[in-house]
Design a protein around this nucleic acid. Structure first.
Lengths: 222, 222, 222, 222
DNA sequence: TGCTAAGCGAGACGGTACGTCCCGTCTTAAT
DNA sequence: ATTAAGACGGGACGTACCGTCTCGCTTAGCA
């Protein structure tokens, strides 16, 4: 969850709660029309009819402010337990997608770019944008494994990464968000696999590697 | 390919070729230490011992300049045809990884973020950064299909997206780059699939949907 | 006399007397190194290890605070009655000079500049800084007149202004404070006059004015 | 003369002359209503419809700006040579007075206060405000000496300081500017002297000092 | 070979936005 | 009831950098 920075102690004049709200609203309004890096704190302050220091007192900088603003729009629904794994996953994908449909992708991308330089921001971003959807779909995967629909040795984290990365990638970088059809395709790919006969490929690879690349595929199953 | 903007006409004083080179070098040097959006054209000009207009004459702005600078470092090797699909894919993954290892991921992310507002930049970015790696791995996939190792109906674009997104995601957002082991795990997941019996899941889901959710799974295969 | 503002009523928590002292001390210390208008109340509070409101409770603003602070340093000695008018005046000059030797002149100047906007401050300033020295020298002049050394019609206020202005001017604007020799020269000039024969000049001027400028010299003696 | 700071070299885009003028005008307008230290560069920029950096490019700070602004209002006419020393001095005093009548005294005072911390400002202030009037009256004194109306050994600098200090003091610190009558009184005081018999005072003082204060009056004339 | 026009280099300009300092005030807890 | 102290809302600061304009110089092509 990304929210405004707390005061140091309990003492002192309390913050005017209307200012924080007005700032978040102004931020969202401005983000609707201007590209992320044209979003000036000064402009936000002007529109929210307050001052720059009042904003800096609440958030350390633009990225944190924007994250807090879009956090008010992100709401991850719990995917239902329909008893049908494929349907559940479909819904789960939807959970990821929904999280990104309300926010302009380039904003996420730019935010994301700033995460590299600010660990604090990175963890807030993860906690706000990434984790909720991840956790919701994670529970769906647990059920699927329990139901015996997924192989037990499935690396659930990896699977979540693949799904999350795809959605994020498309949302942030693609021409358009992932469609339902593409999502279904991805689910199929991830569940069925692309190989005609994976075990045969593995066997072949091991034979080849015996000859030329003995040290690779360290984590390959046997 | 991203290079500097050409002169308007042929006449007049010729450009000093050393300036363009010095600027690109200075840009790369500065990018090694400062985060992307702290890269000031002014600073580049200072370090290259030239002036800002000389830079603006060659590139329309910071993003184009940075793209041109990193383009000099990006070189996507053609993944070899070993005859072993798994090995090829391994190498292909490495191609993606390599593309991100020479350039700080956040730079790519930030660059791409700016693409949203500038179609010209977007196509240069695609041509310079995305397409070569994608095409190289794409060719590997073609061979795999031709060899009969992948199902023919495999959506190669989707597969590429899944791979690329994962690598990019981990590079830009993860604690560390994807390791070889993780890459191998992902390859396995993508080739073998997570489902115990995908066709059974599909059949079940269609039965369920017949009853409750007739309109979903529009693109589901049958 | 400039001192701290009194409490509204008698009831309530008593003021901590150490705070007022510490603030005045801190103010004087800071004035030793920083120019007047770089003196921040905030800084004073920091150095006195208290808070800004505690200062504002005692003085209405910076100027009043500074006046109170320097008032603790200003002490005007009564010039002695030596029986020798010239010697007395010499001492009197010294009284003016002394007032400026303990306080950096620019502080007085800046303080006075603020008086323009604050009548309360102005009267405090007069009572604290100006009047004591003026009164002391004024008494010396009275004695000189009584003794018959100065002409009775001498405008004592004007004479005091001339002396005070010269000292102030040199202290605040000159390269160095007035020296004793310069002071003696000024005394001579003021007592003896610069004219060879003032009455002749006056007669001449009246003749001229009769012809050309009848209305001027309204206050000229006859 | 106080004017705007010159560009470093001849190269580069030339300054828009209208900006400098507009800024000076805006400064003078604002000084008409607001006290000196409430004059915000920001406000000047707003009123002149330009930006703060454009002002800082021309003047190093508020004091220099204000000095330049009031310099446009200060014009010292050459006092005429009427052949009558007293009349000339009267006019000369008028020159001083006039120079200060157009400017609010508190502004001069405040400016003057800032001179203490800035030698560059101090010399500009002297050159702009003090010297012209001083030089004009200085020439009048020269003529008076040449005419034999003033004693030859008169310390002209001291006399000018006395006059200038008085006018400046009254202009800057007094309730009102010096009036013509007061000026005439001052002229009389300075020319005729306040003493009934200065030489007698001197003789007396020397006798006293022989006994009690041998080291004082170091520069006393003999 | 000299002239002309165009493009280049560099510097300074006008202006936006930054992040911070400090102001004067309000609020709570303590005395 | 009034203090002490912390934090707040806000005005203004001086600066970094942006993107552009202007200049003088360099060069290529034409006479």
């Amino acid at each position: 969850m990304a929210t405004e920075r707390a005061s140091t102690t309990a003492g002192g004049r309390p913050r005017d709660p209307r200012i924080g709200d007005a700032v978040l609203t102004a931020t969202l309004e401005l983000l609707e029309t201007s590209p992320y890096d044209a979003l000036a704190i000064e402009e936000v302050a002007r529109r929210a009819e307050t001052s720059r220091p009042a904003i800096y007192r609440r958030w350390p900088g633009r990225a944190h402010l924007v994250l807090a603003a879009i956090a008010t729009r992100l709401a991850v629904p719990e995917p239902p337990d329909t008893g049908c794994t494929l349907c559940d996953l479909d819904e789960g994908f939807g959970v990821f997608l929904e999280a990104y449909r309300t926010i302009r992708p380039e904003i996420l991308t730019a935010l994301y770019a700033e995460c590299a330089a600010d660990p604090e921001l990175r963890s807030r971003y993860a906690a706000t944008v990434v984790d909720p959807a991840r956790a919701a779909v994670g529970r769906t995967l647990e059920r699927a494994v329990a139901r015996g629909d997924l192989r037990e040795e499935t690396d659930r984290d990896l699977l979540l990464d693949l799904v999350g990365a795809l959605v994020h990638h498309r949302a942030a970088f693609g021409e358009h968000h992932l469609t339902g059809a593409e999502a279904a395709g991805a689910i199929e790919m991830l569940l069925r696999g692309a190989a005609v006969d994976y075990d045969a490929l593995l066997a072949h690879s091991e034979k080849v590697e015996h000859i030329g690349h003995p040290a690779s595929h360290p984590g390959a199953p046997h």
